[in-house]
């Protein structure tokens, strides 16, 4: 078997890459797929915390690189879904401890054992970003509806296109429909229009995500949460299902004025 390798990337930090990785990992596991999440943010690991697996870690990705243990042995089984496993980042090393080729080798090996492999990329466009996207069959770019995040996303798309890398698709995270309506936040249409890549999902701003991250209980498990539903929908889209987008936004007054004038 050879599963699909999907790297979650962003350029700008703090936009929700790890949140997205944890939630999509569980979303696909809930759909019955076998999933391995690789925390590639070496030195700053936190995917384990978001999944509530911190206290179960014995080995990490660097132990696998240095052949101190096998991949299978380093994987931490998720407590929510038995078909989801995490390959944790190392805490004490930095990103230079792993090369692009080594990451590729580990990701391919993981793909032999799972339907989906998610790689949680570090922020930035340096070495950590490059090794995270190297093995990808698909890059999911996470951005927030704010100008600096979109600018960085555009830069990352440019780098991936120039390198002839995997196709890139977009997730807009932390959209606040009320702020969009008041015309103080970028709306999804103008972001997609600018970045000119396929949109796979819009995740609303949701305080439940913060709480969920702290508790190690990702929001995708919460049936009531709108953000959780967005992640479940993105998961289904990744399996090839056509799921219509939920309606989150109303047109701004400016858009209305211009529509009126034309």
């Amino acid at each position: 078997m050879s599963g699909k390798i999907i790297t979650i990337s962003s350029g700008k930090g703090g936009v929700g890459k790890s949140t997205t990785t944890a939630n999509l990992g569980i979303a696909l596991a809930l759909l019955g797929k076998s999933v391995i999440c690789i925390d590639a943010d070496i030195g700053l690991r936190n995917l384990d915390v978001m999944l509530g697996l911190e206290n179960r870690i014995v080995y990490d990705i660097i132990n696998v690189v240095t052949k101190q243990c096998s991949l299978r042995k380093a994987l931490v089984r998720d407590k929510h879904c038995s078909n989801l496993a995490l390959l944790p980042a190392a805490q004490i090393c930095d990103k230079s401890a792993i090369s692009e080729d080594e990451m590729e080798r580990i990701a391919r090996e993981a793909a032999e054992q799972a339907d989906f492999v998610f790689i949680d990329s570090p922020a930035g466009i340096e070495h950590g970003f490059r090794y995270a996207v190297k093995p990808a069959d698909l890059v999911l770019l996470v951005t927030n509806p704010e100008v600096p995040a979109v600018r960085d996303a555009d830069r990352v798309i440019g780098l991936l296109e120039a390198a002839g890398r995997a196709p890139v698709q977009l997730i807009i995270n932390r959209l606040n429909p009320e702020l969009v309506r008041r015309d103080v936040m970028l709306d999804a249409d103008s972001i997609v229009n600018l970045l000119a890549i396929k949109l796979v999902g819009i995740v609303p701003e949701d305080p439940a995500i913060l709480i969920a991250g702290n508790r190690g209980q990702p929001v995708v498990l919460d049936k009531q949460s709108l953000a959780g539903k967005s992640f479940r929908n993105i998961g289904r889209r990744l399996t090839g299902e056509e799921i219509p987008f939920m309606s989150l936004q109303a047109p701004s007054w400016l858009q209305r004025i211009f529509r009126f004038q034309r």
Binding site: V147, R151, D154, R155, I157, G158, L194
Partner: peptide, 24 residues
């Protein structure tokens, strides 16, 4: 093509771009 943030296109004569010049 699209000229994305951080990308620069330089032409010695005239240039016709079919695509956008994004911010940056």
């Amino acid at each position: 093509r699209t000229l994305r943030s951080g990308q620069r296109l330089q032409a010695t004569q005239h240039v016709i771009l079919v695509g956008d010049v994004n911010p940056g």
